[in-house]
Amino acid sequence: MKFSIVVYAAPHSAEAAATAFNFTRSVLEQGHDIYRLFFFGDGVHNASRLSVVAQDENNLQQQWDQLIRDHGLDSVICVSSAVNRGIVDAQEASRHELGAVSAYASSELAGLGQLIDATMHSDRVINFG
């Protein structure tokens, strides 16, 4: 079964970000496919590479990055949500002369077309907000 997962919640603010992560991991453990992860609205904070947490806390952003790389997942951050929340890749950082890259390179900044494409090509779309 091919899943796409849409995340609207920011880590450390809402449990839904962690629920989405645990769900995604479980989908993969069960041998299903992830067609795409799509981070939208406050969900774009899941792709921040600048978070620091206490030693006894989970770094959810880092866990997402690891999971995405380990499984070669297609992960998209909605570009309009991202740039106004300060989540930028190298290209946006240089375009807006921001002097820092805040998004993990494992996710790609792209438009809502990628979400629509995911709904067209997935067996199941599930939302976490």
């Binding site: 939208f40 309009s80 438009g111 809502l112 077309g113 979400l115 629509i116 067209m120």
Partner: peptide, 9 residues
């Protein structure tokens, strides 16, 4: 925004 994008596609 999502609905408008869906309509475009």
């Amino acid at each position: 925004e999502m609905a408008l994008a869906c309509a475009v596609f």
